[in-house]
Structure formats: C-alpha cells, structure tokens
C-alpha cells in the first residue's frame, strides 16, 4: 500500500527525513515512534501528499503521491495535528461538509452513527469552538472515519483524549485492523498501540533505525516485553536530543 524509498526532506537546510525507507503492506498496521523532530509528522504529511519531498519517491497503491488523483486521495484518511475542523460550524455541519467533499453516500445516517460512536451526539449541534481538546480529537477521528478510507494516516491520534477516549480509539483501531485496513499511526506511548499494530518503527535522525514486530506476528515476545523494549528504544532515541541528533 505504501512504498517510500530514499525519502529526503529538509527544512532550512536541516534534513528532517534523511533517506527514509518504509514499506507498508495492504492491511498492515504500523506504529511510528521517535523523539520530537525525528520526522514522524513530516513523514505522515509526505505520505498524504501534503509535503513535497526533496529526493526519493513515495508510492501509495502504486501511484506516485505527487501525482495523486481525487480517487486516490479518497482512499486515504489523514488525522493531522490540526483536526481540519471549522470553529464556527457545529460537529454535524463539519462532518456534512467533509462528507460532501468525499462523496459519502447516505450522509445523514453515517454522520449520526459516527457522532454516536465517538460520544459526541449530545453536542452535535454545538459550534466546534465550544469543544474541549478531547472533544475536538474525537470529532477529528470521526472525520477521518467518515469516508471509510483504505489507508489511515494518524498523527498522534491519542493526543488530548481521556481514558474512555483512549479506550474508544483503541477499539476503533482494532476494528480497522480486523477489517484489513492499512494503518500508519504516530504515537509517543508504545502501550497505546501494542496489541493493535503489527509493526513498530522507531525514527531517529530522519530514518527508521529500529523495527520490532508484534508478538501476534512472530510469537517471540509478549506484549509487556514489547512495550518495555519499545520504551527503551524511544527513551534512548529521545536522550540523543531533538530529532535524535546528538547535541541538537
């Protein structure tokens, strides 16, 4: 589903992605970890076609991402740091807008079902500007699920969620994985995604330096041990400084 080869992206002469390679098979769920500035969000935006890369190539479903068509973009769901939500519109109106844009059939029923699913039905008519951080994140999640994409690019989807929100998101992610959707999720906490994702990549200095597989895949380690291993790797990368660069 995703093929990224030798991806290089620099901002102001500083390489954020530095020859990154990543392959994600259809139906696979991959978690990305790494210290701040490691290039996780840049990678997600590049995969969504929002950031032009300097070198290398990114193919989504075999199509170069910089030549993507409306049909291809319809197959991708992006949850970025900002939820792409309009303050002056209600939750329902926001979802209506995105549903129209994505050509979602039977909009009313789909929006109602999703707002109930993310626990926002009671606030459906309230302007989004009155929402808390967690409510915004739930609504942003509903927006991504709206058009039932094949590929989910989720940049720190757990941010701002309370315990029930985290539980809900884990349930939704598990459903997506069970439905053989392709998921790339950026996270800072391994325990949030262990048990859901099959592969765990640690980005440092703009490259994937470590890669672990889930116990379900190879039975080598149990979930808790995997979390510990990942936490150690992320900790070690973070200790190297911003982006995993020593002295940065």
């Amino acid at each position: 589903m995703i093929l990224a080869e030798g991806v290089v992206k620099s901002f102001g002469g500083r390489p954020v992605l530095d020859g990154l390679d990543l392959t994600v098979e259809p139906g696979e769920a991959v978690a990305l970890f790494g210290p701040n500035g490691a290039g996780k969000s840049t990678l997600v935006r590049a995969l969504a076609g929002l950031t032009r890369i300097d070198r290398g190539r990114i193919l989504i479903a075999g199509v170069p991402v910089d030549r993507s068509t409306p049909e291809l973009r319809r197959r991708i769901g992006l949850l970025a740091h900002q939820g792409f939500l309009y303050d002056n519109l209600s939750a329902e109106e926001n979802l209506h807008f995105w549903a129209r844009l994505y050509g979602v059939p039977d909009r009313e029923a789909r929006i109602r079902a999703l707002l109930r699913r993310v626990g926002l039905w009671a606030f459906a008519s309230d302007p989004v500007r009155t929402y808390s951080r967690g409510m915004l994140q739930r609504l942003a999640l509903a927006r991504v699920l709206l058009h039932e994409p094949e590929l989910y690019l989720l940049d720190e989807p757990f941010t701002g969620l309370d315990r029930s929100g985290v539980r809900l998101l884990r349930e939704i992610l598990a459903e997506l994985v069970a439905a053989r959707r392709t998921v790339v999720v950026v996270s800072h906490r391994p325990d949030e995604v262990v048990g859901i994702c099959q592969r765990f990549c640690v980005l440092t200095e703009g490259r994937i330096r470590h890669e672990l597989r889930s116990p379900q895949a190879d039975g080598a380690v149990d979930g808790a041990a995997l979390v510990r291993s990942l936490e150690e790797l992320v900790e070690r990368a973070s200790a190297s400084g911003v982006g995993g660069r020593r002295g940065a």
């Binding site: 969504a48 319809r74 992006l78 939820g83 844009l101 050509g103």
Partner: peptide, 17 residues
Amino acid sequence: TERAADAFSGLLASPAE
C-alpha cells in the same frame, strides 16, 4: 478561517482539486 484550522491541508488531502 482556512489557515486557522490548517484546513487548506485537509482540503489538499481531500478529493477536492
């Protein structure tokens, strides 16, 4: 209003040209 929510990114990532 589009810039405030980074909605231009959302629009670019959507099927809208």
